[in-house]
Each structure stands twice: as C-alpha cells, then as structure tokens.
C-alpha cells in the first residue's frame, strides 16, 4: 500500500457505527476513503445528519472508527492508546467547534492560554503567544481580560479560532465555524481562514452551506455517510 507523499491525512474505508442498543445501530460513515494534502484548505459539505461531525471527530481523534484505517502523517492512529490520542490532539489538531466551547467563567486570554498549559509551553511565553494569536484573528486588545461569556458570538468564535491556532497545530478542524454568525462576520472569519491557509496552515472546514464551502480550495461532498463528489475549485 502506498501513501501519497504530500498527504497529511489518509483515510481508508473508514466506517463508524453507533450502537444504541443490542438491536438498534446507526451506520453513520460507510467505507469512506480520501486523502488530504499538507497546506490544503478542504471543505467537507453535506446535509444535516450525513455524518460530517462524526467524520471530524474521527479526524481529530476525539473518537475512534469502528473499522478502516486512519493514517495521520503516515502514522496509523487507529492503534493509539488514550494517552497517545491525548498527545495527538494536543500537538497536531486545533478544533473550532460550532458552539465555540469556551470556558465561560475564564477570561479570553486564559481560554487561549489553556492549550499552551497542557502543551507545557514555558510559562513566560504563554501570554505573549496567546496575544499574538488573538491579534491574528483580529480581536481587539480591550476584550482580552473580559470573561468569554461577555463577548458577542462573532468575538467568541474569534477567540475559539485563536485557541485552535495558538499551539501551531498541523491541521485546523473547524465544525460549522460560522453556523451561529451573521453573514458579515462569517465572511470575515472565512477570509481569515483563507489568510492562514495562504501562510501554510492546513484547514478542514465542515459546513452545510455552499457559499462557505466556496472559500475552500477543495470540496468533499458527503451524503448519507458516503463521499458522493470530490472537487478541486482552486
């Protein structure tokens, strides 16, 4: 078996089945195979319930597949232990969630510092790096000491993106990052994704809206747990 030289992600026949009880089970992903190159900007698109989030959890090692193989940077991830998975998430992935998932009782700065704490980045570097990340996503300095639940949706999403970027992950996995935003802030966020991608950041963007997917360089269409179309736009 040969893996593409440029690829960072290689999935072969990935399946995910949820077992709700002995009899009832839902096959969410059915033998999905694809590769994603380094420094690419890929959108995964499909209707609600088709398994996009499930796929993202597998790619981000938040969950493990029922069958199939997942190579990340040529390494088989399916055999990882819990601690190895945790290390993988710490070092390789930056997540942006649809519902932000910020620590509401912590300040903006603290939220962005947190991944650096787990990554054991030296104390004195942390705040500086968090500030740089926040500046990169265009959040005003005046908000840095606010509690994150005192921000608007657009601001929260910027903080979430800064948090995903701060530890220089190999890939960014963004699940409907603009789902809760108006079109103006959506466009601003998506433009900044394009900017990060031009700087060499690999990004996987999950969405159910065509105009969002159009910001990406490649679109993978998912339907009912299968890839039905895969097209490069740029």
């Amino acid at each position: 078996m040969s893996l593409n030289k440029q690829s960072i992600i290689d999935c072969q026949n990935l399946s995910k089945t949820y077992f709700i009880s002995e009899e009832i089970k839902t096959e969410v992903l059915k033998n999905v195979s694809f590769s994603i190159n380094k420094e690419d900007f890929v959108a995964i698109m499909g209707p609600s319930g088709c398994g996009k989030s499930t796929l993202m959890y597998l790619l981000g090692c938040l969950d493990i597949s029922t069958s199939g193989k997942y190579f990340f940077d040529k390494v088989d991830v399916s055999t990882f232990s819990n601690d190895q998975l945790a290390n993988f998430r710490k070092n390789e992935v930056g997540f942006v969630f649809q519902n932000f998932n910020l620590l509401s009782r912590s300040t903006v700065l603290r939220n962005v510092i947190l991944p650096l704490v787990y990554a054991e980045v030296p104390r004195e570097e942390r705040e500086e790096r968090a500030r740089i990340a926040l500046n990169n996503v265009g959040l005003d300095e005046s908000h840095f000491q606010h509690l994150s639940n005192q921000l608007s949706g657009g601001q929260m999403q910027r903080v979430a993106i800064a948090r995903a970027l701060v530890n220089n992950p190999s890939i960014i996995l963004a699940d409907e990052p603009t789902g809760n935003l108006d079109s103006k802030s959506s466009r601003a966020i998506l433009s900044s994704f394009q900017k990060f991608n031009q700087q060499g950041q690999t990004i996987i963007l999950i969405t159910h809206e065509q105009y969002v997917a159009d910001y990406a360089k490649r679109i993978i269409y998912l339907h009912d747990g299968k890839i039905i179309k895969d097209k490069r736009t740029r």
Binding site: L62, N82, D83, A86, R89, F95, L103, P115, Y118
Partner: peptide, 16 residues
C-alpha cells in the same frame, strides 16, 4: 462536563 470535554479536546490526559 463540557469543560472536561473541551480540556480533553485540547490535549489533556485522563490523568490530568
């Protein structure tokens, strides 16, 4: 619970 989930997503181990 969500905070715990998030901490795990950004790399905290069970032990942490």
């Amino acid at each position: 619970t969500r905070e715990i989930g998030l901490r795990k997503a950004i790399g905290s181990k069970n032990k942490d």
